[in-house]
Amino acid sequence: MKSKKETFLQFSKSLPRKPYFLSMIILIFFFIMLGFIGRNYYSAYNLTTKFRLWMPLLLVALGQTFVILGGGLDMSVSSLLALVNVVTVRLLMSLSGSPFQVPIAILAGIGVGITAGFVNGLLVTYLRLPPLISTYGTQIVWGGLALRVLHQSGGEVPFSWYTVYSSTFLGIPFSVYLLALLLLGVYYLKRTGFVTQLKACGGNIHGAYESVLPVNKLRIQSYMLCGFFASLAAICIVAETVTGNPLSGSGYELESISAVALGGTSLAGGAGGFLGSILGAIVLKLINDVIFFAGLGVNYQVLAQGLIIILALAAGGQLTKQNTSRAQLKRRKKV
């Protein structure tokens, strides 16, 4: 049996080879900086608020990770957020007074998300449409449907939603519990071998067929999971804003893909992980805070956001290259 210390040493040694290493370093750097320049950044109140605002991107990035690992891409998540948002809000309004108001609205929202994911999955598997362009197509469709359900921002959501969503239990915010629960679910999927099989589809689809995996089913499921996570993100947005907005998700498709890429997941599919996507999403969110507290203008915030993603990905590419050659070198020495 290994001692705890040994296990820890081993872990820290393997750390530079983890896909999320780079985003972790950036994150730690940002946190330290914020400790110095961010006034009261680490107050419980501020952190709770921040985390709540990060939540939708974290969730969408998690969902996007499934799709990308399986060799796909989902550009439709942005409109899907909007669609789930307005469906939930409309149901809340029309069921006002009914005892089942809340569960029905939430379940319907999630149902819409999963169904949309299923449609995306069908398009890219059985109909063999290219993921990028077909999810662009569904992005337009979901967006149109969202506008049909609700023409413009508005609608009333019981304020209790916000109260619950922003509440804390034992000092820990509700959103953290929600995320923890979902991560437990992701962990379950990892342990059932689902994630591994999905990676096989994304990594070498011929090899996946050769191993008699149900390739199409796995890929459809990945899109459904993405839809599921997107719908939860939408519901979080409803709770935060307490109103409906048919344009609420715009930009989330690209931001989530950036987060996934920053987290070290290969956009070609097959390699990467969920922890990375979470770190990547937080990095994206923190850039603005760092620039803000550094006293630079809002224009610099935007510039830095773009540049940091580019630099991080460029560095990430170099890092992987180095790691591979180091691994090969190590072997040669052994032999």
Binding site: G193, T196, A200, G203, S266, G270
Partner: peptide, 21 residues
């Protein structure tokens, strides 16, 4: 020509699709 999935581990490759549960 190999049918392996390069991104997965040795164990995952060997047990792919026939994982003991």
């Amino acid at each position: 020509e190999l049918s392996l999935i390069p991104q997965l581990s040795i164990e995952e490759n060997i047990m792919l699709g026939i994982e003991p549960r």
